[in-house]
Design a protein around this nucleic acid. Structure first.
Lengths: 340, 340
DNA sequence: TTGTACGCGTTATCAG
DNA sequence: CTGATAACGCGTACAA
């Protein structure tokens, strides 16, 4: 299989115009419905477009109207199950609004300035996930007046960039409340996510809040690294078990961690939920299919994506926007906590 | 929070030129390293770029050079865990080559022509996943001489579009061979994927091939729909158990199905692997963390993405390309088959 | 209702 | 080594 024949240049609007026997302006009007055109000429133009298989050049169009109709998505990496619904929500909302989606990750590749790939030069606005960008860069972005929306990241001190996230603290608190109130657990381990993730901070805050409200002191030996990662969580729990520390429940930082937790407990012959209650966070696809089915908090991740796009589009249109959108979460009771 | 101040037009190459006291041509040369420039003027230009925070307009650049430096990815939807490593491989390879990635899904949104969003007008080439596009469209694409690479889809009859996929048949066969040879299984259920997926076809072929080579007749009652989907698989196995049909192993179409299979067997009190062996396909993240750890075939999905980009770039450069790339898979023995 | 002519921001060609 | 200037393909006043 060899390269295609010397690809002749694609047809231009002028080619279409000539073939249809009209001016390029009329063709433009037909394409953009920007002005009425007599049915007869309309037909001719459409026919010409069809036979030439003509598509207007995006670049020329962008240059002329000075809008790209493209949204940029900047993310640290593409790894967790978590990203699937987020991406889906974003892509869906963007394409419904007639916008294309340009994505770029900051972790891999030559660590050149992310703005070389994504910025005002090729998008109308940017969606920035989590900690993909230093605060300094965000400040510069704000100063330039370019539309930006933050996803799952708090707006840094002093800036006014709108953000979309979920009620991490409330969700975590309701989870721990449930463990304490319904299952009389008191020695509750918490596996915290990465230090850099805002989600992790708020979830830990919810954990501490619940404990405080139930007058249970926080035992530092029970607050351990989970890193939102299955293997890390599994290791941490293994060590915890070997150390002989007593505990009767585990609030994993997220569902991925919970998977590691379940594996570690199983290996040690500790029964879930009889001996130890386990809960996750996010309610990803596999949460209901693991054994035992995972009690967790449902994060409306797809909606987060949709709302983020919605906000960004408003910003682009010059409309007002909420400084921060906090989407509600919902406790999902299954069996790993001890219910049923 | 309200919309940003009236965003002044971004700086142009002429602004930079004026500020640096040179012509726009020289600025262009500095930016693109397209011709030598005296150190003194170089400095001035770079300084001007810096103070103006100038970024060349992608659209103008594309229009002038008639290349977009952008790759398009067309996929049916963003759903399975499976897509994560694929996307990662693609994004990584693309950005390393200095290409941007434009993605679009065909399932959601107004079912307008996918080419309205992705095509020659805004990309240099297209990556097409699985069955996101009718063969007729593919034919048109080939006729236009536009670079296209197929991912996880066989090249349709009569066309010569290069494709990247994995050795589905070989993988499936080695899985079933293992079940028969190492664990003496003979009543092996197969949960097939969606009819439309080439992967599913080849996996079933591998299953039949293995059976044939071991002189085991195929029992149609054991070849059932799995749809590469957890819930479907769970239902199918439930019904199978209720029907009283005898079986001693299950080759799930993929790991997602295997999750449903495990859940169904657990509910019915059937032990894995003592009573029934279970194997998956793909080796997704959770495969090693479910109970029992899943014996499966490792699909090099991230590499598929990388290779696809690699091939597409060659095509764009006018180089020759293999008609079909079949990436090898590897049997991953864990415990769900009965080993250990 | 339609056509003309210019601007959009870069790169490329050709002199100097 | 550097500076004019002509494309690049499309939208859009403005004129007809």
């Amino acid at each position: 299989m060899h390269s295609q024949p010397p690809s002749r240049r694609p047809p231009t609007i002028d080619n279409v115009a000539k073939l249809a026997g009209v001016s390029s302006a009329t063709v433009s009007r037909v394409i953009n419905h920007s002005a009425p055109v007599i049915p007869a000429t309309l037909q001719k133009v459409q026919a010409a477009i069809e036979t030439l298989n003509y598509r207007p050049s995006a670049a020329a169009r962008i240059l002329a109207q000075r809008k790209t109709d493209t949204l940029g998505l900047l993310m640290p990496e593409i790894s967790e199950t978590f990203f699937i619904p987020l991406l889906r929500g974003i892509e869906q909302a963007a394409s419904q609004a007639g916008f294309s989606l340009l994505i770029h990750t900051t972790s891999y590749g030559p660590k050149n300035n992310p703005f070389a790939m994504l910025g005002e030069h090729n998008t109308d606005g940017l969606l920035i996930f989590s900690e993909s960008l230093a605060n300094e860069e965000l400040a510069r972005l704000q100063r330039s007046g370019f539309p930006v929306v933050l996803i799952h990241q708090d707006t840094p001190e002093g800036l006014r960039i709108p953000g979309i996230t979920i009620d991490n603290q409330g969700g975590a608190q309701s989870l721990v409340d449930h463990l304490i109130e319904q299952h009389s657990r008191r020695r509750i381990v918490h596996l915290r996510g990465p230090q850099s993730a805002n989600d992790a901070l708020w979830r830990e805050k919810g954990y501490r809040q619940s404990l405080a409200e139930h007058h249970i002191p926080v035992d530092p030996a029970l607050v351990l690294p989970g890193n939102f990662d299955t293997d890390t969580a599994q290791n941490t729990i293994c060590h915890l078990i070997q150390s002989g520390t007593a505990f009767d429940a585990i609030f994993s930082g997220d569902d991925s961690s919970a998977l590691g937790v379940l594996a570690a407990l199983r290996e040690a012959g500790i029964r879930v939920p009889e001996d130890v209650s386990v809960v996750g966070f996010d309610d990803v696809d596999f949460a209901s299919h693991v054994h035992p089915p995972l009690t967790t908090v449902h994060a409306p991740t797809e909606q987060v994506g949709e709302r983020a796009v919605e906000q960004l589009l408003k910003l682009i249109a010059g409309e007002e926007v909420e400084p921060v959108t906090l989407l509600p979460v919902e406790l999902v009771i299954r069996k790993s906590c001890g219910c049923d």
